[in-house]
Each structure stands twice: as structure tokens, then as C-alpha cells.
Simulated scan of single mutants.
Amino acid sequence: MTTDEHLDAPPALTEAMIAGLPKVLLHDHLDGGLRPTTLIELAADVGHELPATEPDALAEWFVTAADSGSLVRYLETFDHTIAVMQTVEGLRRVARDAAVDLAADGVVYAEQRYAPEQHLQRGLTLQEVVDAVQQGFDDGVAEAAEAGHTITIGTLITAMRHADRGVEIAELALANRDRGVVGFDIAGAELGFPASNQAAAFAELRRENFPFTIHAGEADGASSVHDAVQQGTLRLGHGVRLVEDVVRGEGADVDAADRAQLGRLAQWVLDRQIPLEVAPSSNLQTGIAGTISQHPITFLRDLGFAVTINTDNRLMSATSMSREFTLLAAEADWNLDDLEQATLLAAFAGFAHRDVLERIVAEQILPGYEAARAQG
């Protein structure tokens, strides 16, 4: 290696460096990121029985239950988190905690998603749910600022794909588009509930020029991604099973990007740079791959797809953005340049207004990575 090559190489990533990097999180479920201590306290308040009442034991239960390789079983863990998010106080506290925890992890822009229709069991209206969550985010952003962390949070209002409330929830999102809500999503059991079932909701959102993302290519294959693309999604929630439309090379290096052949769907997503909201640890739990090194995220990145890094459900995966970065660095050889590229892709794929995203990039992301290089 020449001296110039050595100077151009990105610095070695350390745990401290990764912790300090600015991060952008596009795919994180509010009801999948509760602190175990908060969950225990809120469950006691509402009389909900948990599988464990000691924080470490409860955290371990969630990871074990989610680590089944089945999305259906994975989703069952939400019965406990949703149970304590049925009051204004519970929703507000969970949202506040999320903002504080993400900011402490270096997240400078986050989109938090949740389904208001799942929080009506104790008499709240849909709008009351949205108001409580927004107040919690406002509280958390202010608390984070007091601790020296600046974070911007936008909300994605989610409709459950197995229900028949898509238009109603889309209208709820539109009614709050100038009050913290930046986009729409559908979530829940993917297999058997195609995005086209909610076509009327997506048509309404397109008429109103309101952005949306769709969970696709997580528990169902490339056909689900195709369906989401046909609905006009601006991003793909997970999207990793898009690799089913890619023929890998032959020989020892089957993952060599220059030897892969893309099908028409994969080529369309690549050409239009539709961002993939990839959550590596979560994907391992739902059976996408056995290890981070085998996860298709690196292959998709090498093919040129707009890959972003996400947590999905921090409680169920016992993860954070710093942990996801660390795993990719340690097990898939991602370097500082790779992490910066994914972060910038995520920033400009955000649903906040462009001036907001440009300010975050200019004032937080680029200086943060420059500081990391200087430090290295």
C-alpha cells in the first residue's frame, strides 16, 4: 500500500467512534422499542400481566420469543407492549423514552411509526392517540436537548394490513400532516395480505401528495415487493427478499455484484433508487439469513441499491443503531465510508421536508463524519 492509499483509507471503526456517529433511522416501531423498566411500571399501572417482572429477565424473554424465525411469532410479542400503550400517560411516556434513547444513541433524524388503531382499548379516540404520542415526542426532544443531543422526529401513521381501516387511517395521517406526521405505512402480517388490499388508501395519499412506505419483502417474497411498487411506494420496508429477483454468479464468489443478473423488478427498484429500509438483526430473527455476514444487505449495497440501516424493533432485537453499525462493521466488513453512504441515503430518503433534511445533513451528519475521520 502506498502512502497516499493509506491516507485515503477510512479509519478503523471503534465502539466509541460508532457510538458518536450521527445516525438516521427510518424504520423503527414505537411499540417495539419500549424500555423494559417502563414496560414493567406501565403494566403494573394498568394491571397487565407480563411474562417476567425483572428488567433483564423481561428483556431476555422478548429476544427469545422474537428469535423464532417466524414473523407471526415475532408479532405476538407486541401483545404485551401494546397492552400498556392504551392511555394518554402510557403513550406519552413511551414516546418520550423513545426520543431520549434514540438521541442518546446518536440518532439525529428518526421516523417513528405506530398504528393508532391498536391503542383504542381503553376508550381513546384515534386523534387522542396521535396527540398523546406527539406530546411524548415533544417532551423527549426537549429532554434530549437538555442533555446536549439534537434530534428531529417525524411520525409515520400506520394502518394494519389485515384490517379494513386503511382509508380511515390514511385520512388520520393527512389530518395531522402539519402536526408532526410526515408519512404513512402499512404493517402487520405480510403474507396473505397484499398491499393492493389497501389500494384505496394509497390512491387517496397520492391525490394529496403525501408520502408513504410499505412493508414488503420481509415475510413474503419478490411478488410482495412488486405489489408495493405498483401501489406507488416511495420506500420499501425491509425489501430484502428482492434478492429473489437477482440471479447470483456462479463459482466461489457467488455474491460478486458484477456477476449478478437482475430481473425486471430488481432492475426497476435499482434504477429508481427506491430506498430499502433494511433491519439486519430483525431480519435474522424472522429467518432472512443465519448471520449478519450472510444477510443480503451487503450484496444489495454492492449492487448499487439504496440501502439504509434500521433497527425495526429495538426491544425485540435488543438492539440500537450503534449495535447495527457495529455488527455490520465486525461481521460484514463495512467501513466508515459505507456507514456514511447509508446514512446520507437515509437522510435524503426521509419524509420530512427537503429543507429540514438538508439542514440535518449540513449541520449534523457531514460534520459528524468529518470529526470521526479526524479522530481516526
Score class of each variant (00 low, 15 high):
T2R: 05
E5C: 10
P10I: 10
A12T: 06
A16M: 09
I18W: 11
A19T: 00
A19G: 04
L21D: 01
P22L: 11
K23F: 03
L25K: 02
D28I: 01
D31Q: 15
D31M: 12
G33P: 06
L34M: 12
P36Y: 06
T38W: 00
A43G: 05
A43M: 11
G47A: 12
L50S: 10
A52I: 11
A52P: 07
A57G: 04
S70N: 12
R73M: 09
R73Y: 10
T77L: 03
H80K: 13
V84W: 13
M85A: 15
Q86G: 08
Q86F: 02
V88Y: 03
E89F: 06
E89K: 11
R92M: 15
R96E: 05
A98W: 13
L102M: 15
A103D: 06
G106C: 05
V107Y: 08
E111R: 06
Q112A: 07
E117I: 03
Q118E: 03
G123A: 01
L126N: 00
L126Y: 02
L126R: 08
V130C: 04
D131Y: 15
G136T: 07
G140M: 07
V141A: 13
V141E: 14
I153T: 08
I157F: 08
T158V: 06
A159S: 14
A159D: 08
H162P: 11
D164Q: 12
D164C: 04
R165P: 04
E168N: 14
A173G: 07
R177W: 00
R179V: 14
G180H: 00
G183T: 10
I186R: 04
G188R: 11
G192W: 07
S196W: 01
S196K: 01
N197L: 02
A199R: 11
A199I: 05
L205V: 09
E208K: 11
I214G: 03
I214Y: 08
A216P: 00
D220F: 14
A222W: 09
S224I: 02
H238W: 04
V240S: 15
V243M: 13
V243T: 15
V247C: 03
E250M: 08
A252Y: 07
A256F: 10
G263M: 13
Q267Y: 10
W268T: 07
L270N: 12
D271P: 00
D271W: 10
I274W: 07
P275S: 02
V278E: 14
A279L: 15
P280K: 14
P280S: 12
Q285H: 12
I292G: 13
R301Y: 06
A306L: 02
V307I: 11
V307C: 00
T308P: 08
T311L: 01
L327I: 11
A332Y: 10
D333T: 10
L336T: 13
Q341R: 14
A342G: 00
A346E: 09
A346D: 08
A346Q: 10
A347F: 10
F351P: 09
R354H: 05
D355E: 07
L357V: 06
E358G: 05
V361T: 15
A362N: 15
E363L: 05
E363D: 13
P367L: 00
